[in-house]
Each structure stands twice: as structure tokens, then as C-alpha cells.
Design a protein around this nucleic acid. Structure first.
Lengths: 349, 349
DNA sequence: TATATGTATCGAAACGTTTCGATAATTTAT
DNA sequence: ATAAATTATCGAAACGTTTCGATACATATA
């Protein structure tokens, strides 16, 4: 009998084997549901494990298994800290799905400008992860560092080379948004964006253009208001909208590349006494929380963030399983998962 | 010579030992800067390690060291997903400091209502962490589960029993805020809050009361507007402010328990045509990003979130080092670190 | 001079698992 | 009846480190 007072040592597979009178390897097989084990012994092992409160030590499993059970989740530090919980919600989705696969998620941030020699995340060197999720636009140098290290990778809300990715169906979302504006009777619609090198934002512009063309209308270049240098945030929206109001004739509606920009536009409009939606209809993209709470509330394209994270994790998990098998043509046929969106109509349109 | 095409196997301590013609144990000593090693061999080992790009495998170290190098960061899921990046910024601080100690941070969420039998985080069972950071108010059942497991713990922005904690200096912050309102000539100041069982929010009310007393004024009970049931968020602020405006006489200023509440008040005021700060001065607490961007911008008490995370991680690290040593009187003298705040005066006051 | 102390090096045990054969006992196919 | 395949069990090697003695020599202390 174990002493009562002393906190008895944590039990190991050895203890369970002794208690159940079987070999260590048999316990291992039972715990992992592998190989052949008779009903009799299986039950004895399970009972002993329960009795001794046995839980396999992670650290010990990793060594022979040559895997860590960790998934890295990498985010640019400025994306993580930004005010709207966009990537946060995506992370939540990955974490949820990670539970299903008994994986741990290790969140790490990288700087906007990535220098491989300086700030390569430790887990790459130490091989402390089995796979990597990269959310949002990051420095291509980072992605190639990861790819070179031979770590299975899935991008989220970003695309680069042929790496597998889970992205928003931006094109479709943008079309819905613009078609909604047409249906409300608007004829001259402006597009307002920033950082148009970002594949997602570029796709939104494309969707805008397709929708306008489909309506049989021309796109007048001055209506496309973009800032290639700035970030697609509130400030930029606030500033850029000056150019919108200076347009001649002024568009009766504007489709913004994301909600942050749209909220900036809304505030600039309020400042100038331009009524929304009477004088100007505004539509955003993302459906951040403030879109609902803002006065006026913002019509926008809802993105299922948790779902994106979930899908990405599931996808990565599949890839990790396949990895050793078909190493050669692994890079071929890499796939992009497109997550659908939904139009949420509110007071701004 | 290694073959060129095949990605040669990752080098181990054994390879380094062979390359430098020393024992494996010597390499280990060099890599960890322990024990006695002659200059000569030390250099040979370092050179060999560099040549072979040797990085110790985390998984292998953990086994004999009986430690994982992981720190858990636990957050209630609704706190994590909420719109203002308060805890996110705290996390960022912990991650930054974790780098300095070569620790990994494992972010996990728990539900608001915690049931130990149902959703105990896996890392507790698997002993996959060396210490735990808990941010924000969580179910006491969770904390006691952790404590029972004997895992070093530091709370952030929350207090419970005698557990060590890093908290905001709420009392001081609240005093500054209220004294600022007095200095602006306000005599009748209201307090608006929710979830007043939260130690932080309770301390803010206390600071309010101290400041009012210090000014030689009485506190009229109807001016203390709190909702014990609701969460301290935008919606609650929006709703509660109705009671504020119904006050007779109406206070000329209100100090809100946090920015989210204050922003709700601001919008309700705007809706009713009450001018801020002319008819009503509003002060919040936290300095969330929107406090700056809101129209009107919000006077508030700034909290150094990253710094709190950093301090907590450093503190936890210390505790982890001490842990085995003075196990007996470890719980005594447990300490609370109080992080100072700063008053940020903007347009709302 | 004998003895303790400090420096240097190494072999081997230990950490707690998984998994690869080896060995047998069954069952199934020929 | 014999060979082959399936089921069951176990011992031992392996995973890549850290760390505990053991050994040896050099230097300081009594």
C-alpha cells in the first residue's frame, strides 16, 4: 500500500503493467488501441490504469514517436494586437479543432519585417512542432524559411506560391455586396481599399469589378480609391474618404475592402455632415463586432472566422498524416479551400 | 561526406561528440554551460556543433529534466473573443518575456462555467506544462483544480485566495480619474459598473469612493449605478446609462468601471442629444484602442497590458525556480504585484 | 608528507514511452 | 495433413538527452 501522507509519485506505464500483470508493451498497445490484445488483458489493463490514475507522459511519448503533438500558429505581431479580434477568432477555431486531434497549439508572433537570421522562431530549430498554421499576410521570407525546414504548412487568409491555404471567398463576397448596392438603386459605386497587394483584398476589388461589369456598367477609374502604402485600417479609411468626397460626381455608395476602412469612412462622413445611408451608402467586409454596434450600424460581408481556423487545422492534420507517404508529389495538387461568406444588411445601406 | 540530394538526417549530440572527439556527456555540459570543461574541448565542441547545425531536441531534453519548457496561458473563451484586445495584449507581454527564458506559451481557453470532470485542460493531466498563467476572472473551480495538481500559478488581472497575482493598481487609477473630474469642477459624480464581484472592478468603485470622501463630499447612493448580473460591456453601458439620465438631479460626470461601459454611455448620450463633455463628462478605464478613435474620444485610465504580461511571466518563472526548494512555506508570503496606471485626458471630460 | 579540494573527462544509468522482431498458439486455406 | 495467415504476448532495443558516480590528475591545506 502506498503511504498516505506522502504525495505518491505519478504512476507510469510500468506500474500499470505490474498491477495488471502484463508486459509493458501490452499496456502501450491497449492505451493506443493498436495491435492484438485479448479481451481479458485489455480489461485488466484498463482497470489498472483507472485505479492508478495513469495518464501517459507526453514528453516520454514524443521521443520514440518522433513527433511533438504541437502545432505552431504564427501571426504577425501587429495583426494580433490590432483592435478587431479577427485573427483571434480564427485562432479560437484552430484550438477547438486541435482538441479533437489531441494537439496543442503554440501561438507565436513574428515581426512585420522578417529576418531569418534574427528571429526564426525557436520551434523551427528545436523541431518542437509537427505542423504550422500561418494566419494573415506575412513576410514571404518567413514562409520560405518554414518550407525549407520541411514543415507541413497551411496558410490562413493569405496565399503564397503553391502553399495550401484556407481563404475567404472574397470574390463571391464582394459580388454579393456590390449587387446588394445595385439592388438598392445605386448606379455610381466607389471602391475604397489599401494594401492592394494582399491577395484577399485584391480579390475583393476583383469581385467589385466583376459585379459592376455584370451590371453592364463602366468603372470610372477615379472611383477606385486605393492607398498602396497604408494599412487597411480605420485611420486610412478616415483619410482616404476625403478623396471619395472630392469625387465629381460623388458616388452614392462605397464598397470598402474591409470594415476598419468602412468605419473610418463612416466617421469622416459624420464629421462632414454627410448622411448615411441617405447621401452615401457604405458597405464593409469582415463583420467585426463594431460593425454591429456602430452608429449607424454597418452593412457588411460576414466571414466565418472560427470555421476558417477549424478547416485549416483539419486540413493541416490531413497533410501531416500524408506527409511521409507521398513525399515526392506532395507539393503537386496543393489545394485552396475557399470559405463562403454571407451578406449582413444593416443601417448603412 | 553526406550525400547531397538526400536531406541528411538531423544531427544529434552523438554526432557532435564524434566530430569533436569527446564524450557525449561533455557535449551536454558545454551546451548547458555546466560543470567543468577545458577551454580546448569547449571550443572543439562549439565548432562541431556549429558545423553540424546541432540544436538539442526539445523532446529529448524534457524526459530526463522532468520539465517541459511550456507555460500554459489560460483565458476564458468569452474574454479572449471579446472585441477589445485587452487580454490579447497581456498575452503578447507574456510571450515576449517567455522568449527570454526559452519557454513556450501554450494558449488555451476554458468555458465560463468550468466543470473539472468535463473540461480539465489536457495539459494538466499530461503534465505538459511547468507553470500556469491565468488571465482574467475565471471559475474558482478551475483555479483549485490547478492548485490541487501542484502547478505553480500566477493570476493576472484577477485575485483569488492567496494565489500570487499581477493586478492593475485599480484603486490608484480610479482615484486619479475621479480627482481629475473634481479638478474640472464637477461636484456630483456618478459611478457606473457591472459584475462588481470582480476584484478589479470592485477596487475601482472603492477608489471612486475614497476620492469622493477625500474631497469632503458625500456619496449619494442613487449615483452608484451597477448591474451585478450583466457583463461589463458595451451593451450593459448602453442600457445602464438610462438609469444615469433618469437621476434627479442628473450628475454632471460619470466614472465608468471600464471603457466598454463608457463607450456604451457615450452612444446612449449621443442618441439622446446629451452633449459630451458639456452636459456630461465621461471617464473610462483600460484605454482600449477605440477610446482614442471614438467621437468624442474618451478620457480614460491607461493600463500597461504588455507590461502586466511580462511581469507575470517573470514572476511565474521565479516561482518555478523556487518551487522544489521551499515547498513547505511556499504558500506563505505570496505576493501581489500592482502595476501602475496613467490618466489619459481626451475629449470626453 | 598525507589529505582534502578543485578541475577535467568519461561511461553508463535513467527518463517513460513506442515499436520491432521473436515466439507461440490458434485459425484458415490448400 | 500441411502450410500459411491471424491472433496474442512479451522482451528488448530505440528515441536523444541529462546527470550520477567513477577515475585521474593537479593544486591547495594541514
Amino acid at each position: 500500500m502506498a503511504t498516505v501522507s506522502a504525495e505518491s509519485k505519478r504512476s507510469t506505464i510500468k506500474d500499470v503493467a505490474a498491477e495488471a500483470s502484463v508486459a509493458i508493451s501490452t499496456v502501450s498497445l491497449v492505451m493506443n488501441g493498436k495491435g492484438y490484445v485479448s479481451m481479458d488483458k485489455r480489461e485488466r489493463v484498463l482497470k489498472a490504469a483507472r485505479l492508478l490514475k495513469y495518464v501517459p507522459r507526453q514528453a516520454a511519448r514524443k521521443l520514440p514517436m518522433q513527433s511533438t503533438g504541437n502545432i505552431g500558429f504564427v501571426l504577425r505581431v501587429d495583426h494580433f494586437a490590432r483592435s478587431e479580434p479577427f485573427y483571434t477568432r480564427i485562432f479560437l477555431g484552430t484550438e477547438f479543432e486541435a482538441h479533437n486531434h489531441k494537439l496543442y497549439v503554440l501561438l507565436t508572433t513574428i515581426p512585420k519585417k522578417f529576418d531569418p537570421t534574427l528571429h526564426t522562431p525557436r520551434f523551427l530549430d528545436e523541431r518542437n512542432i509537427d505542423g504550422l498554421l500561418v494566419a494573415g499576410k506575412v513576410d514571404p521570407a518567413f514562409v520560405s524559411t518554414v518550407a525549407r525546414a520541411g514543415i507541413p504548412l497551411v496558410l490562413i487568409d493569405f496565399q503564397l506560391d503553391d502553399h495550401p491555404a484556407v481563404v475567404i471567398d472574397n470574390l463571391q463576397g464582394a459580388r454579393m455586396a456590390v449587387e446588394h448596392l445595385f439592388s438598392r438603386g445605386h448606379e455610381l459605386i466607389s471602391f475604397l481599399g489599401a494594401d492592394m497587394l494582399h491577395p484577399s483584398l485584391k480579390a475583393r476589388l476583383e469581385g467589385f469589378q466583376i459585379a459592376v461589369s455584370a451590371a453592364g456598367l463602366e468603372i470610372s477609374p477615379p472611383c477606385i480609391i486605393v492607398s498602396d502604402s497604408g494599412e487597411p485600417d480605420y485611420e486610412t479609411g478616415f483619410d482616404l474618404s476625403q478623396r471619395l468626397f472630392a469625387c465629381e460626381p460623388m458616388p452614392s455608395a462605397v464598397f470598402c475592402a474591409n470594415d476598419a476602412l468602412a468605419l473610418g469612412v463612416l466617421d469622416q462622413a459624420a464629421k462632414r455632415g454627410i448622411r448615411v445611408p441617405e447621401d452615401l451608402a457604405v458597405v464593409g467586409f469582415d463583420d467585426v463586432p463594431r460593425a454591429e454596434h456602430n452608429r449607424p450600424s454597418l452593412t457588411t460581408v460576414r466571414v466565418y472566422k472560427e470555421q476558417m481556423g477549424e478547416l485549416a487545422m483539419r486540413y493541416l492534420h490531413e497533410r501531416m498524416a500524408d506527409y511521409p507517404a507521398n513525399y515526392i508529389n506532395f507539393e503537386r495538387g496543393s489545394h485552396t479551400v475557399r470559405v463562403p461568406t454571407e451578406l449582413v444588411i444593416r443601417a448603412s445601406s
